[in-house]
Simulated scan of single mutants.
Amino acid sequence: MAILGIRDIAALANVSPATVSRVFSTPEMVSKKTLNKVQKIIDEVGYRPNRMGASLRTRKSGNIVAIIPDITNPVNAGIIRAIEQGAQSAGYSVLLGDTQGLEEREQHYAGLVSHGQADGLLLFCSRIPFKTDPNLPLMEQLPPMVNGNERIDSDEVIQVAVDNVAAAKAAINYLISLGHKRIAAITGPGNIASSNERLEGYQLALNEAGIELDSALQLEGEYLVQSGMDCARQLLLLPQRPTAIFCFSDDMAIGVMKFLQKQGFVVPDDISVMGFDDINYAKFVTPSLTTVHQPLHEIGSTCIELLLKQLQGQKVEPGRRYLPFELKVRDSTGKAPE
């Protein structure tokens, strides 16, 4: 086999091209096991690095990739703005990758970093878009990267988010304090980590209050206004309707309120509605929406700050950084009807 470059060595050693580059440039940053593995391949094929190519590879592209499932979602607006501001102040441009939740698109945009068209990656989904070897340290196989909002099940990844379990639990505890016992939950898609965390918080709060879980009150939505309307219709058909509905996004909560009002229900006198996110227009709908405030701008600014530190050669410890949430009590929630 004719060896063409570092990517070929990486493929044979089953590591990332970045790891092979570190073997040549900063071997002290590579674990002994990985170093020996890559060096063995290099010796076997007689590879010698192209110094001119190496010089080109170390040149900065000046780009950062942000992989976002849906750039039209209002939740992402504040995050994207903060990323742009932080990146531009440091001399970087941001390449936005709208993946529509598709894994192949995530891998495509992540490939811009692997191919040297971008220097780092901001990842707002719960999958790592690179092939990795489970027998090697994960961080050594990844480029400079920060994960935001969606949990990746690894302590080796730098992550920024709110504590979704605690936030959902606080929301339900507030509704319980108003006397509500039949509290419905309209979740996000089941393959989204943050939705599953919020469901956990919802169930924990009910269990701790001694309120029996009712599966008929848990519906899976799609983080869209229409999805909220559709789920509200199903909940109104139940023999015993909920007195409060907790939606895992503000868009769905607004859809729920719109449908309830069309059916002649008064929010919150008949049914209370609570959202999650605190998007810009949550306080402008009628009635104004009680919701869980996520510090979206701070999430974006923290993500870009941690990525820039890595690009500047600073060591950043992996693990989760939780930012504070806040319960925004407005007019869409009230005491449970007698």
Results as ranks from 00 to 15, higher is better:
Gly53Phe: 08
Leu296Tyr: 00
Gln312His: 15
Ile172Asn: 04
Leu136Arg: 03
Gly116Phe: 01
Val285Lys: 07
Ala18Gly: 11
Glu338Met: 05
Ile9Trp: 01
Val30Ser: 04
Asp269Thr: 07
Glu222Cys: 14
His108Ser: 14
Ser31Lys: 08
Gly148Phe: 04
Leu224Ser: 13
Ala77Leu: 05
Leu96Ser: 08
Gln312Trp: 11
Pro239Phe: 00
Ile158Leu: 11
Cys231Tyr: 03
Ile271Ser: 13
Phe246Thr: 07
Pro144Asp: 11
Glu28Gln: 13
Phe246Trp: 00
Met252Ala: 14
Lys181Asn: 13
Asn135Gly: 09
Tyr322Glu: 12
Gln218Val: 15
Ser177Ile: 09
Ile9Ala: 03
Leu204Trp: 06
Arg51Tyr: 10
Ile83Leu: 14
Tyr281Arg: 11
Asp163Glu: 14
Gly334Leu: 05
Thr333Leu: 01
Leu237Cys: 11
Ile79Trp: 05
Arg127Lys: 12
Thr72Asp: 04
Ile68Leu: 13
Thr187Leu: 02
Val23Ile: 14
Ala336Pro: 14
Asp270Val: 07
Asn36Glu: 15
Ser272Glu: 09
Ala87Ser: 13
Leu237Val: 15
Glu212Thr: 14
Gln85His: 07
Ile71Met: 06
Gly188Tyr: 07
Ala87Ile: 08
Tyr202Asp: 08
Lys315Thr: 15
Gly97Ile: 05
Gln39Met: 13
Ile192Ser: 04
Ala11Trp: 12
Cys303His: 07
Val157Ile: 11
Glu220Thr: 14
Val285Ser: 06
Val146Arg: 01
Glu317Asn: 05
Ala167Gln: 01
Asp270Ala: 11
Ala10Trp: 04
Gly46Lys: 07
Gly111His: 10
Phe130Asp: 05
Leu12Thr: 08
Ile83Tyr: 02
Asp119Tyr: 06
Gly210Lys: 04
Phe265Arg: 11
Val38Tyr: 00
Arg182Met: 00
Gln312Pro: 12
Arg241Gly: 03
Arg233Lys: 09
Ser301Met: 01
Val75Glu: 08
Pro242Tyr: 02
Gln234Leu: 13
Leu122Ile: 09
Glu212Cys: 12
Leu260His: 08
Gly264Gln: 05
Val292Ala: 10
Ser272Ala: 02
Leu289Arg: 00
His115Gly: 13
Cys303Glu: 11
Asn135Pro: 00
Arg151His: 08
Ser272Arg: 06
Pro324Gly: 03
Leu289Val: 04
Tyr92Phe: 14
Asn191Phe: 13
Leu219His: 08
Gly97Leu: 07
Asn173His: 09
Lys258Ser: 09
Val316Phe: 13
Val146Lys: 01
Phe265Gly: 07
Ala167Tyr: 04
Leu308Asp: 06
Arg81Ile: 12
Glu212Met: 05
Gly62Thr: 02
Pro144Thr: 08
Met139Tyr: 15
Gly188Asp: 11
